[in-house]
């Protein structure tokens, strides 16, 4: 289910004194099975752009094709597209609207006119995928959930529609380190086991860098960089220019290089960093200009 964007522009409050252009001539292609981090400071246009991925916005300038279908075409079934491209919003409370977890997850499949057995099966599957125990949580009141559990319930509600693409906006916002780790593990599993295309929208590099294969960075409505994770992350100055903090391991490696050590820049986690530093320390004269 590829997503293709061609020369897309977007202006908020168009035709009013408060008009603000949020996207400038964006072109982009997302293929099946990709794992993407869409990163930028707030107001960079990343959320606006992603709302074109599931036809919440319909282009007025430029074109958007989802699975080859033009979303501006009147004949395109937008509701079907929204089932296939699931979108989880930053605030799960906006998205959960039934009383209990089970009822809420059932909402999508019911709209898809699934049989009761199928709905039941999908609820079980979705809850298992996000790590909410069926027996414990099926009848749990939405309001009795913790922040992290609400986020999972919101993801489960989208997963029950069996999407091929999953967009997750600010999935770690407001969670503490433990909660962040848990939810990101869920996302990783979804991509690996279910082969779902995942697009993570975030302004935090640290969360995303460890997971995704491709990073798209945005600033002021334009795409600044787009490429494999290691490559994008190694361009530290470009990240800093748009106010994003590169993951700390990258910064450490960068500073070591500036001191004249030969270490690679595209290092993603502590394990890799340790082994590179050990290699460097054990290589006699491994430095270039150290004096």
């Amino acid at each position: 289910m590829p997503i293709e964007i061609e020369n897309l522009n977007h202006t908020y409050k168009e035709g009013t004194p408060f008009a603000r252009q949020a996207l400038f001539n964006i072109s982009l292609r997302i293929d099946d099975g990709e794992f993407i981090g869409l990163i930028g400071p707030s107001q960079s246009g990343k959320s606006t752009l992603s709302q074109y991925f599931n036809a919440l916005f319909i282009p007025k300038s430029g074109r958007v094709f989802i699975d080859g279908k033009d979303t501006a075409d009147r004949k395109t079934d937008l509701v079907q597209i929204r089932f296939e491209v699931g979108y989880v919003f930053q605030n799960p409370e906006h998205q959960l609207f039934k009383t209990t977890v089970g009822e809420d997850i059932a909402f999508g499949p019911t709209r898809q006119k699934c049989s009761p057995e199928e709905i039941e099966e999908r609820i079980r599957e979705a809850m298992e995928l996000v790590g909410l125990d069926y027996e414990t949580f099926f009848e749990r009141d939405i309001f009795a959930l913790s922040g992290g559990q609400k986020k999972r319930a919101a993801i489960a509600g989208v997963l029950a529609c069996r999407p091929k693409v999953l967009i997750l906006d600010g999935i770690t916002a407001g969670l503490d380190p433990r909660g962040r780790k848990e939810i990101l593990n869920v996302v990783k599993k979804l991509h690996q086991e279910k082969k779902i295309t995942v697009i993570l929208i975030s302004h935090s590099m640290d969360d995303v860098a460890r997971l995704v294969d491709r990073i798209i960075t945005m600033d002021q409505g334009k795409i600044v960089d787009d490429g494999p994770t290691r490559k994008v992350l190694s361009r530290v100055d470009r990240l800093q220019q748009i106010g994003l903090e590169p993951p700390q391991v990258i910064e450490i490696m960068q500073q070591l290089r500036e001191k004249g050590f030969t270490v690679p820049t595209g290092v993603l986690n502590i394990k890799e960093a340790v082994s590179e530093i050990v290699k460097m320390l054990n290589t006699p004269g491994g430095e270039q200009s150290w004096n």
Partner: peptide
């Protein structure tokens, strides 16, 4: 407490563990 450890501290600790 389920909190992060600063990356630099973590790296230093790992390297210490390797005898540096």
């Amino acid at each position: 407490a389920g909190l992060d450890i600063p990356v630099s501290a973590q790296l230093a600790e790992e390297l210490k563990g390797k005898g540096f």
